[in-house]
Design a protein around this nucleic acid. Structure first.
Lengths: 119, 119
DNA sequence: ATTATTGTTAACCAGTTGGTTTAGTATTGC
DNA sequence: GCAATACTAAACCAACTGGTTAACAATAAT
């Protein structure tokens, strides 16, 4: 089943706002990068960044609201897990532009090819 | 010439910050969407959004700083053009995660397939 | 020369963000 | 029971955002 994500489909602006906003902070991107390697507690996610636990915790909340991360409590430890599926929204959003930049790259490639022919 | 954008390469955080921040506002995304259809003046980019010219102009500046748009003045009108190449940074940034979510989707597909077999 | 058009700049404002510290709540371990 | 651990909640702060209006500059049209 293929979903049509082409130009006419209205993207969910609220979701994209939350997503891009979540991704616009390098600390949060670093936390995501850490989570690629596997689940982690909030302390583990705070430690490498030289910031207080509350700060790290707040970042995690932003990631959770964007649905990039899910956390569940086990005892007193909160285990956080990457939930990368929502990044497909970014992927789909890019579609219209990918076409555009490929065109430009093609033109550049043709230009370069033509230049080399002249030499 | 292939550039290695794999995990070990440090992404340019400043550029990604500017890029994701620029994309995190729906007005700016709408302006980009408009520019897919071709260059436009600042007035044209302000008009559909029921906002003042200075506001639209500020958004354009954010897009320019992220290098998503380039503007040049001709007479008194500023023509703005989409510069989508920089979105490849987003594309590349996604790489590590794409792998991750494809895995998950594969597992889901396998699960679904097994379920249908049972029926 | 005047006037209209297309923007920019500056000053301002309310709300958000990213950080802090301090205090409090569960849970675990001794 | 008591102390340590892992976190959350609240209050605060400076800086940034996204918007406004008012004033200005530059170009075009009459």
């Amino acid at each position: 089943m293929k979903v049509n994500y082409s130009k006419s489909i209205p993207y969910n602006d609220d979701a994209l706002d939350r997503l891009f906003k979540a991704l616009s902070d390098r600390t949060r991107r670093a936390q995501l990068a850490r989570l690629v390697k596997g689940p982690a507690s909030i302390s583990e996610l705070a430690e490498p960044f030289d910031m207080s636990l509350p700060a790290a915790s707040k970042h995690l909340k932003v990631l959770e609201k964007a649905k990039l991360v899910s956390c569940k409590k086990s005892g007193r430890v909160h285990y956080c897990q990457l939930q990368p599926e929502v990044l497909q929204n970014v992927e789909h959003w890019l579609t219209d532009y990918r076409e555009f930049w490929n065109e430009k790259l093609d033109k550049l490639a043709q230009f370069v090819a033509r230049e080399s022919d002249d030499e």
